[in-house]
Amino acid sequence: MWRVWGLEASVVVTKPESIQSARSIIDERLREIDLACSRFRNDSEIRAFENAGGMPVEVSSTLARLIRTALDGAERTDGAVDPTIGAAVVALGYDRDFALIEGRDVPIKTSFVSTPQWTSVRLDGQTVTVPSGVQLDLGATAKALAADECACAVSMSLDCGVLVCLGGDIATAGPAPDGGWIVLVQDGHDAPADTVAIPGGTSIATSSTRKRRWSQNGRHVHHIVDPRSGTSVDAAWQTVTVGADSCVSANLASTACIVRGFEGARDLLNTGLPARLVDRAGVVRLLNGWPTDDAVGTGRREP
């Protein structure tokens, strides 16, 4: 386990002798993605849009892929997961690496003004046009895509099964161990927990309002933003975990559910994706045959 992007990362492979090679592959891919889309690096590609004045910008294939994933995600979630919330996130004080604001009170620096929605961003091959004043934040999909791509790269390069975990985003590729990949689902040591077994080639993503929290002028805020208001979501669910065939799909579903609240739970039910929702009171609700093997926590549970 190691720290990257302000979160815990880990990798497990079915060939123990390949673990160091797996870590090298992952580190290289994460550096490439960070250089493309980090909001906190002065030399990242995404910062180029700040001075483009709404003019088209030619970007790398990596950033184009990240933006395409974000725009596709916005379309799939009907705008609940919107990559044009960057200005809102900055207005909330999340304008630097999270370690620099965690546990601190951050003053209001700017007033949030509604920005154009994701449909205002144009992507033509590797040419991207972002309206002047609009700031992209790809965090909702970039981490999940990174998990998917890292797992695929390790499995293909080393001919093994692999599980990659980046914070709450878990992707697998290749053959799983006998009995599947055993994953602990728990959002903090004091939260209800489950262990689940997932087959190779599937993913789990968790979206949470319990982590990445800070205060702004004495008011608690968190990183999941409602695009309609530009403020932290007043969440019905403190944690949502979803299983899917890719980490991107799982993360889109879990994040959209938190943004939409009870309506989001109904949407999840209709998707058929297995999901585990924890409400404000710590009550766990399971949807669509969530694959619980054994409850290892003390939280209350409701069907």
Rank of each mutant, 00 (worst) to 15 (best):
R3W: 03
G6E: 05
L7C: 01
E8M: 10
A9I: 07
V11T: 08
V12H: 00
P16N: 00
A22M: 12
S24V: 02
R29E: 13
L30N: 05
A36P: 06
N42F: 10
I46R: 02
A48L: 14
A48V: 12
F49V: 06
N51I: 01
G53Q: 07
G54Q: 02
M55G: 06
P56Q: 08
V59D: 04
S60A: 05
T62A: 12
L63S: 09
L66C: 12
T69D: 05
A70W: 09
A70G: 03
L71E: 07
D78S: 15
D78N: 15
D78F: 05
I85V: 15
A87G: 07
L92I: 01
F98L: 13
A99M: 13
I101S: 01
G103L: 12
G103K: 14
D105S: 08
D105F: 00
D105A: 08
F112C: 04
Q117L: 10
W118E: 06
V121W: 10
T127Y: 04
P131R: 10
L138A: 09
G139Q: 03
A140R: 12
A142N: 02
K143H: 07
C150F: 11
C150R: 13
S155V: 05
M156Y: 00
S157R: 14
L158H: 12
C165P: 00
G167S: 13
G168T: 14
I170F: 03
A173P: 05
G174F: 04
P175Y: 04
D190I: 06
D190G: 02
P192Y: 03
A197F: 02
I198C: 06
G201L: 06
T206L: 05
K211M: 13
R212Q: 09
R213G: 01
W214L: 11
S215R: 14
S215F: 06
S215P: 00
R219N: 06
H220E: 10
V221D: 03
H223C: 07
I224F: 01
I224C: 02
I224N: 04
G230F: 05
W237D: 08
Q238F: 00
D245W: 08
S246K: 10
S254E: 04
T255F: 13
R260Q: 15
R260C: 08
G264V: 12
G264N: 08
A265I: 04
A265Y: 04
G272P: 13
R276K: 11
L277C: 02
V278W: 00
R280V: 08
A281H: 15
G282W: 11
V284S: 13
R285H: 13
L287K: 06
P291N: 05
P291A: 07
G297C: 05
G297L: 10
T298L: 08
R300H: 10
P303W: 07
